[in-house]
Amino acid sequence: MAALAPLSTYALRLGDDALILGQRLSEWCGHAPTIEVDLSLANLALDLIGQATHFLGVAGDADKLAFHRDALDFSNCLLVEQPNGDFAQTMARQFLFSTFQELHLHALASSKDERFAAIAAKAVKEVAYHRQLSSDWVVRLGDGTEESRARMTAGLDWMWRFVDELFQMDELEAKLAKGGAGVDKSELRAEWDRRVDAVLAEATLARPASRRPVLGGRRGHHTEHLGPLLSQMQFLQRAYPGAVW
């Protein structure tokens, strides 16, 4: 893929995060623990697919970007591509990501770039709800039964190695942040820690132990889970090149 302008690269990262998580959540449709929960998860997925459409639209042709890139050109963080696992693992992923995404979008709503500011201002409200919903589930499952507690602990444990990547800055994003269009994500970490710790405390759960972070998503080096997701998502566009749907 040809090199993109820095703002486009940034939009691509934001769009890929939303797209891949939306795709993951949509896998739940029809299979959730209750009908009501099924509806909630679909609402989250729809919000994220909408955000992806907007951010990818800033980077270029949204559909072309979503359906015609290989894993090396996807720049989402590794957290969002993790498998759904059980409902606890899905909620653990959502809670960690939405808490981050809300802080990120909140800051981005003051971007000097009007397009980013407008998308972020709308999306931050959606994500505040995602954070609320997933936090409530972390608490219920953490402080529910022995089984739910064990499952939530395992879910957080699975996801925790991908947390540091959320706040990682590279030269490109540092420049954008300095210029006022982007956000210095490293500055969000303290507030994220505070919020996450508060929910974990209410859930009577211990914070998972720190460990060596797994990184690479922003550079296109993903986990093994992204490939199968893309091959499913992109199947029709790949099988019928040039077709209009």
């Binding site: 909408g50 459409t53 559909d63």
Partner: peptide
């Protein structure tokens, strides 16, 4: 849903099944 061929179709189908 996971194989819908465009973002628009994906959102429509998900909203409908929901």
């Amino acid at each position: 849903i996971t194989r819908a061929p465009s973002l628009r179709r994906k959102a429509i189908l998900l909203a409908k099944v929901q």
